[in-house]
Simulated scan of single mutants.
Amino acid sequence: MYSPAEPFCASRLEVLFAACFAASENTVLCGGAAEPFYQPAVEVGEPHRLWYREDFFASALHEIAHWCIAGRERRLLPDFGYWYAPEGRNPAQQAAFERVEVGPQALEWCFARACGFPFRISTDNLPAEEGEVADHTVFKQAVCAEAGRRVGAGLGQRAQQFCHALQQAFGNDTPWQSWRFSPVDLP
């Protein structure tokens, strides 16, 4: 459970997410998964479950970003109907992965900014060859541009609601509309 000594406890996000969406969207955030997964309700009366990896704060923020972007129809499909190729993707698969990850990672960065959590780009792929170093500069630039675009255009209703809840819970009163994103801010 949440402790002031450890502000970035993922269970804290579960409580915030439930306060925002358990009643209105019948959706709960759950930790402890070996892999992230969105599980729509199967039985009437049970909630949809948004699973994040283990107890990782960043994984929870990332899965919430995916959920906020997914439309109503996608939220009725397991894992929003997305494909997933595991680590060890070839260059074409990695490029496809990065194209679909721009939006979720940009929104995750907004959520991280709202609560003061350090954001890191995730390419979610180990190099195929020992010692191989992949250049993800274009991906980083695309995530920065998309984060700036989302802030300028509005985050979307669910994302804005969650962002506001994060700001209140973590004591961030900087208007999200003033946030700027740059590749130099990324490790």
Rank of each mutant, 00 (worst) to 15 (best):
A60N: 14
L13D: 07
A18Y: 02
G116P: 07
G156T: 11
D173R: 14
G31A: 07
V143N: 07
A145P: 11
D173E: 06
R49H: 09
P36C: 00
R158L: 11
A5T: 12
A22M: 08
F181S: 02
S59I: 00
L155E: 12
E46V: 11
H62P: 12
A60E: 07
A5D: 12
R74G: 03
P78I: 15
V42R: 06
S178D: 14
A134H: 09
A92F: 08
E14W: 03
E43S: 09
P86M: 11
C30M: 12
H136S: 10
Q157H: 13
R53A: 01
E73F: 08
E108L: 00
F80T: 09
R49D: 09
E73T: 15
A128T: 14
F139I: 04
E129G: 05
E130P: 12
A145K: 13
W67M: 06
F97G: 05
Q168I: 15
V100E: 15
F57A: 00
A65M: 09
C9W: 03
G45L: 04
P7H: 01
C30R: 14
A85H: 12
P187E: 11
A147P: 00
Q161C: 12
L107N: 07
P47F: 10
A19H: 13
F17P: 02
A22Y: 01
A22W: 03
I64F: 02
R120V: 10
D173W: 09
M1V: 04
G71N: 14
K140S: 14
E35F: 12
F37G: 01
A33I: 01
V184K: 11
E46H: 06
V184P: 04
P91E: 06
G156L: 08
Q160H: 13
A5K: 08
F17D: 02
Y2Q: 05
D135L: 07
L61T: 08
A142K: 10
S178R: 15
F21T: 01
